[in-house]
């Protein structure tokens, strides 16, 4: 393992992140606050409770998941797409680093950024609602796993993309709808039965449910199933990345 190289990539990426500190941190805080004002305050005041939890608190896990998933994907996809776009990828390809090291560097940095954003949103949430976390360690574990798995997905998108449009296509067309329909802002049990069945094909449901369990100790699907879903998702991403690296797909000609 070329640990120095992994560190170099990681630090370089994190520097980029801190250079754009304002966008990186302020914008999630502002958008979260808006969500709380609109959903928690205006709408939530008429909803009372969902499954015995105040609506303001109920949406916190979904809100964090929404941000963390989009942030991870965006960070990682941009991180590897940008060097391809400006041509500096030559340096990665000509350096004595293996693909695994490149992956660890980029995905590690993207996941770290997303994790920080997730924690900041959690902190912001405490300002708006009365919140208790039933299983803090499980909560962190879910958060970290989600950051990593969606950073892996982002890495794949970044390698696949040939333009900035394509870079945004998948997050826009796939991830955002899946997250919104995955029960971020409502309980799946509130849906009509047929939609409940359809929703079960949405992998994000399992992630949000598991994460919500860590907060409130109650879940729509079993926690084991949630863990299985996240493991499966991570496994599929790793398999795709393995194939990309084996073939040099869209990295080398």
């Amino acid at each position: 393992m070329n640990l120095i190289a992994i560190k170099a990539i990681y630090v370089y990426e994190m520097t980029r992140f801190f250079r754009t500190l304002l966008q990186s941190f302020i914008s999630p805080v502002i958008s979260t606050s808006l969500y709380f004002v609109v959903f928690g305050g205006a709408i939530g005041s008429r909803i009372e409770t969902v499954e015995g939890i105040s609506y303001g608190a109920f949406i916190v896990p979904g809100l964090i998941m929404l941000s963390v998933m989009t942030q991870s994907t965006a960070n990682a996809s941009f991180g590897i797409y940008f060097p391809k776009f400006i041509g500096t990828v030559y340096e990665l390809l000509s350096a004595p680093v293996s693909y695994v090291e490149i992956l660890i560097g980029y995905v590690g940095a993207a996941a770290t950024k997303a994790l920080l954003v997730g924690l900041i949103i959690l902190g912001t949430a405490f300002l708006f609602v009365d919140l208790q976390i039933a299983h803090p360690i499980a909560m962190m574990a879910f958060l970290v796993m989600t950051c990593f798995s969606f950073s892996l997905l982002g890495f794949i998108i970044g390698i696949w993309a040939r333009s900035f449009e394509q870079l945004q296509l998948i997050p826009l067309l796939v991830i955002t709808p899946l997250v919104f329909l995955g029960g971020s802002f409502y309980s799946v049990s509130m849906l009509p039965p047929i939609w409940q069945s359809i929703t079960m094909f949405n992998p994000v449901v399992y992630l949000i449910s598991g994460f919500r369990w860590a907060f409130f100790d109650s879940a729509e699907v079993s926690i084991g199933l949630s863990l299985f879903a996240i493991a499966l998702f991570t496994g599929v991403c790793i398999a795709i990345i393995g194939w990309i690296f084996k073939t040099g797909y869209r990295l080398k000609s």
Partner: peptide, 22 residues
């Protein structure tokens, strides 16, 4: 091919790290 927003020193240090040199 260079990253436009990075400083000269950081770019050069990054290269050294990437090649595994302390």
């Amino acid at each position: 091919s260079l990253e436009p927003f990075e400083t000269v020193l950081n770019s050069v240090k990054f290269s050294r790290g990437l090649f595994g040199k302390p």
